[in-house]
Computed example of a mutant assay.
Amino acid sequence: MWLKIIGSLMVITATACIGFNLAAQYIERPKQIRQLISCLSALKSHINYAATPLPEALNICTNGITGPVADLFHTMSELLTTNGWLTPQAAMEQSFNEVNNLVLKKSEQEVLAVFSANLGGMNREEQQKSLNLAHEQLSRIQYEAEKLCEQNVKMYRYLGICGGLIVVIVLV
């Protein structure tokens, strides 16, 4: 009897944790996109107005931001500093591979890949246009991510708990 109760509680706890982890990813994605937009805005000002070198600008643009997005830009800065032959696009791709806990989807990664391909290879006006385009695209993606967050967070939480209850009922 006690074994069934303990087993049932373990199943419900496990499925609830899965549901809450999935919900946390939907909560974290808009936050990371907002941080990306903030970093790009700071990067834009450092490139256009202060004429800061790219690795230094990447480090400075993450002031006030912590977490995986800051790690992404710091890693990119370190790669550009240590490997002078590395392009910004290659540094961004390597940074994506090295940084954990990023919940960005393919669309955000593609926007950043296109942005980093244009970074450093053009004059300031063209880079400003590229930054503005990336900012607009990320803003649109952020809006969609927030809508998905509102729709799916409660669903995954309830699904985790209810799924565990269904499994327990079927097994008992």
Results as ranks from 00 to 15, higher is better:
10 M>Y: 08
10 M>A: 15
10 M>K: 07
12 I>K: 11
13 T>F: 12
14 A>S: 15
14 A>P: 09
17 C>I: 12
18 I>H: 13
19 G>V: 14
19 G>L: 10
20 F>C: 11
22 L>M: 07
22 L>R: 11
23 A>K: 12
26 Y>N: 00
26 Y>K: 06
28 E>R: 15
28 E>Y: 09
28 E>S: 12
29 R>D: 09
29 R>A: 09
30 P>F: 00
31 K>S: 03
31 K>C: 00
33 I>A: 00
35 Q>E: 15
37 I>D: 03
37 I>R: 15
37 I>N: 09
38 S>C: 08
40 L>R: 05
42 A>D: 15
43 L>V: 03
43 L>Q: 04
46 H>C: 13
51 A>I: 06
52 T>V: 13
52 T>R: 02
53 P>R: 00
55 P>K: 08
56 E>I: 07
56 E>S: 13
57 A>I: 01
58 L>R: 11
59 N>R: 15
60 I>G: 08
60 I>P: 12
61 C>A: 06
62 T>M: 01
63 N>E: 12
63 N>W: 05
65 I>V: 04
69 V>C: 15
70 A>E: 04
71 D>Y: 03
71 D>G: 14
71 D>S: 15
73 F>D: 03
74 H>N: 13
77 S>C: 01
77 S>G: 01
79 L>Y: 07
80 L>M: 12
82 T>E: 08
83 N>L: 07
85 W>I: 06
85 W>A: 07
87 T>W: 04
89 Q>N: 15
89 Q>L: 14
90 A>L: 07
91 A>P: 03
91 A>S: 04
